[in-house]
Amino acid sequence: MAEIAIKKKRPKNLDIPTIRMPLPSVLSILHRISGAVLFLLLPCLLWLFQQSLASPEAYAAAKAVTSNVLVKIVLLGLLWLYMHHFCAGIRYLLLDLHKGVDLQPARFSSKVVFAVSIALTLIVGAKVLL
C-alpha cells in the first residue's frame, strides 16, 4: 500500500556488500530464492514426475536422463532447495505461534534448519539418485 505513513524516519542501508547477514537472515533470503527457483523449474519437475509414472519405458527413459552427472547435481540442488524451504517454513510456522522468537533461540533454530535440511537432502538424495 502506498499510503502507509511511518512515524519515525529509520536509518536505511541498502549497500549490499556492507550488510552483514546473520544466519537467520541468510535462511530468510534462501527461503525466497528456493521458492522462486522451484517455481521456475516446476515444468521440468512435473515432466520428470509424468515420465517416471507413465510406463516402464518412460520410467527407463527418465532414469537415463537422471543418470547424467550434471542432471544429478541439479536435482540434488533442487532437493536441497525443497528441504530448505520445508524446514525453514516449519520454523516460520513456529515463529507464528510465538515459539522461539527471542534472539538466541531464533539463531539456534536457524542452525537446526540448515543442519536438518542438508541431512535430509543427503539421505533422500542417496535413496532416489544413487
Binding site: 500500500m1 499510503e3 502507509i4 505513513a5 511511518i6 512515524k7
Partner: peptide, 8 residues
C-alpha cells in the same frame, strides 16, 4: 505503528 488508510 503504521497508519493504514482504508482503501478496500
Amino acid at each position: 505503528m503504521i497508519n493504514r488508510i482504508v482503501v478496500g
